[in-house]
Amino acid sequence: MSSENEKDEQPSDTVAAHSEDTESLSKDEAKKFYEEKGIDFSPDSPIHPKPIPPFEKSISDKIASKFNSKINVDYVRESRIRVSTKKEDILDVAFFIRDELGYDHAVSVSGVDYPDSKEIEVVYHLGSYTDEKLASQVLTLATRVPREEIPNPGKDSSRMTSLREVFYSVEFHERECFEMFGVYFEGHPDNRRLLLPEDWADIPPFRKDFKIKGR
C-alpha cells in the first residue's frame, strides 16, 4: 500500500519542482527581487548570471573586444565558452580564434535542427593541443543557417562557408553534417556523402521532420 502511495506522489513532486522555476519570473518581478537584495539590475543582463572564472573571462573578453556587436559570447559552464555569430562573419571569427587565441583543432561539428524558427544551427567544438592553458577548454562556435521546408541539399539556401581552410580537421565532420542536415559547405573540397548509402533518396535524416518508422 505504501509503495503505491509513493508512486502516486512522486510525479506530482516533479511537476511542482519544475513549475517553481525561477527563470519564469517576469522582468518586473525580477527587478523588484534584485532591488530588494541591493543588486544592480540592468534590463539586458540575464536574470541568473553565472560568475565567470577569471581565465574564461579573459578569453571571452578578448573575442568580445575584437568583434563586439557581431558576436554573442556566453559562459555556459566551467571550461565551456559559447560564441554565436552570423554565418557571414564565421570565417573572420574562426581565423581570430585560431591565430590569436590558440585553438588548433575541431573536436566535433554537429548540426541542431530548429524547425520552429526555420533555422539549422551548426556547432563547432574547438580545442587546443599546443597551448597548455587551453587544454581543458572547449570553445563552442555556433552559427545559424536558413532551413528550407522542402530541402534540396547542395542547391537550396541552407549553406555556409566551410571552415576547412581554418581548421583542417573539420573535413569529415562537415561531410557528415552535409548529408545528415543538408547544410552545404562552400569551399569544402569534397562534399560527397560519407555515412549514408549512395542511393539515399529521402530528406536528410537528422532533420526533425524525418521520423523513424513506428515511432
Binding site: Q10, T14, V76, V107
Partner: peptide, 15 residues
C-alpha cells in the same frame, strides 16, 4: 533520480 527527469533549456559537452 526523480521519475522522468527533465533537462531544462541547456546544453552540455562532456568528454
Amino acid at each position: 533520480l526523480k521519475p522522468n527527469p527533465k533537462g531544462g533549456n541547456d546544453e552540455v559537452y562532456k568528454r
